[in-house]
Amino acid sequence: MIRNINILLADDDVEDRFIISDAFDTIGLADCIQFVEDGEKVLSYLDTIGEPVPLPNLVILDLNMPKLNGTQTLKLLKEDQRYNNIPVIIFSTSLNELEMQECMHLGANSYVIKPVTFDECIDTARRFYNFCEGTYQFPTIE
């Protein structure tokens, strides 16, 4: 089965990468997701790919990352004409109102709190996929 969904997730926490990877694996969508360690790697990854490899359908950014953090990366992506159409979801441990407002203002599609339980992780992975398919919309937080 050929899948044309490609998600890029940036998180400096190896365990978090493993958890999400495991969740995608559990639902049989392991090849739909790629991982990088920080914001800088997001940009360099995007810069190295090109035709015929398509741009990711979704970029998921952790907030607290070394070098380029989530907010900075989001800003750079939205300022770049090549990438500003890629949907971006912020993926954070806790809800910080101010950061969330800033991210939404910068053009993030949603702000998702990292899941806690195993089941929630699987749900979240499925929602990311469904979001790319256009079958799920994350609730917009004001």
């Binding site: 806790s94 990292k114 195993f118 089941d119």
Partner: peptide, 22 residues
């Protein structure tokens, strides 16, 4: 403190849940 405390806690919850499930 509370933000950073949440990080490892989340992992504990996840792994205990993971073990329970799997």
């Amino acid at each position: 403190a509370s933000h950073d405390l949440q990080e490892p806690l989340r992992k504990i919850i996840y792994y205990s849940n993971f073990l329970q499930q799997k």
